[in-house]
Simulated scan of single mutants.
Amino acid sequence: MKTEKVLIAGASGYLGRHITKQIVHSEYDSRLIVRNLKKSGFNLSVYDVVEAEVTKPETFKNIFNEVDYVISTVGITRQKDGLTYMDVDYQANVNLIDAARAGGVKKFIYVSVLNGQKLRHLKIGEAKEKLVDYLKNSGMDYSVIRPNGFFSDMADFLKMAKSGKVYLFGDGKLKLNPIHGDDLAEVCIHAIRSKEKEINVGGPDILSQNEIAELALKACSKPVKIVHLPDWIRKVTLWTVRTFTSSKTYGPIEFFLSTMVMEMVAPRYGTKKLEDFFIKKVKEQ
């Protein structure tokens, strides 16, 4: 009989769904927080699902009862409900930490991003790292998971590859090893027992941006055509979106354009291959 319970916040998101799928087969019971019960699609005969707004702590009534651990993947991706990174990535997670501490939760696990300290000047990095600071000073036991990018983020390469060309800034030699949601979910669940406070993690294959572009073009059955753009174009694009759009619009663009000129290699983990992911995505389209 399972005796400990894990609360998964952000369960209906990309990573949250992978964690939810795997935790059923783990040693833990689970409870899922979702924004909309009907739209979540979870089987209520299998999962303990509760509806709450993480930006509104008054909706947390009884949610943390009998909860031993929390895994939060809460953060803005492409939401269009008027909320900012500070509203969600920071304040919503502060609400969860405060409620978890008051409820006697043993440990709080938060999924942030690799090289977070170097990304504090970005809107998303500012919010995420401010939250990490808050968690470290909360008095709770914690782990911060720092992935260097999901396979799903690499779909942008596929979008370009469909047109027959992939555009990169610089020479395309910078490397990264993005990780599949299933593999990252394992890391999050293992973190419950881990003594590590910060866990940097990536996928099994370290690839240059050129190699990722080639995999995407190959998956789309296109010849290898990679266009290397000068960095001034990236800088002008950044200035333009920051000047003429809101942070909700430019936040994801700012993050993508900034990490594209950073080495994003993390300790390797997992078995899922980016090449297989690309091939599967193309077949599904």
Score class of each variant (00 low, 15 high):
2 K>F: 09
3 T>V: 09
5 K>E: 14
6 V>A: 08
7 L>W: 02
7 L>R: 05
9 A>M: 08
11 A>C: 09
11 A>S: 15
12 S>P: 06
15 L>D: 12
17 R>K: 13
19 I>G: 08
21 K>V: 02
23 I>G: 08
24 V>S: 14
24 V>N: 12
25 H>Y: 13
29 D>G: 11
30 S>G: 09
32 L>S: 08
36 N>I: 02
36 N>H: 13
39 K>D: 12
41 G>I: 04
42 F>G: 11
43 N>Y: 10
45 S>D: 15
53 E>K: 14
53 E>V: 07
55 T>E: 14
55 T>L: 02
59 T>A: 02
60 F>V: 03
63 I>V: 09
64 F>H: 05
65 N>Q: 07
70 V>S: 07
72 S>N: 08
72 S>W: 04
74 V>R: 05
80 K>A: 00
80 K>M: 00
88 V>W: 07
89 D>C: 00
90 Y>M: 01
97 I>Y: 02
98 D>P: 04
100 A>Y: 01
100 A>V: 02
101 R>V: 05
103 G>F: 03
110 Y>F: 12
112 S>K: 06
116 G>H: 07
118 K>S: 12
119 L>T: 10
119 L>Y: 10
123 K>N: 13
127 A>G: 13
127 A>Q: 14
130 K>Y: 10
133 D>E: 15
139 G>A: 13
139 G>Q: 09
145 I>E: 10
146 R>K: 15
148 N>W: 07
149 G>H: 14
150 F>L: 15
152 S>Q: 14
154 M>I: 06
156 D>C: 00
157 F>M: 06
157 F>P: 04
161 A>K: 04
164 G>E: 06
165 K>D: 04
165 K>H: 05
176 L>Y: 13
176 L>N: 14
176 L>A: 13
177 N>Q: 07
181 G>E: 08
183 D>W: 02
186 E>D: 13
192 I>F: 04
192 I>A: 03
193 R>C: 00
193 R>F: 00
193 R>G: 01
194 S>L: 00
202 G>N: 07
204 P>C: 01
204 P>L: 00
206 I>V: 15
206 I>F: 09
208 S>N: 04
209 Q>A: 01
210 N>Q: 06
212 I>V: 12
213 A>T: 03
215 L>H: 08
218 K>S: 06
220 C>I: 00
221 S>C: 00
222 K>D: 04
227 V>A: 04
228 H>R: 03
236 V>P: 04
236 V>I: 12
240 T>R: 06
242 R>P: 06
244 F>I: 11
249 T>S: 11
249 T>M: 10
253 I>C: 07
254 E>P: 06
256 F>T: 15
256 F>R: 15
257 L>H: 12
257 L>P: 03
260 M>Y: 15
261 V>C: 13
261 V>I: 15
263 E>M: 05
263 E>N: 14
264 M>R: 13
271 T>W: 08
272 K>D: 12
273 K>N: 12
275 E>F: 03
276 D>P: 09
276 D>Y: 11
276 D>W: 05
279 I>F: 11
280 K>G: 05
280 K>Y: 11
281 K>V: 09
282 V>D: 10
283 K>F: 03
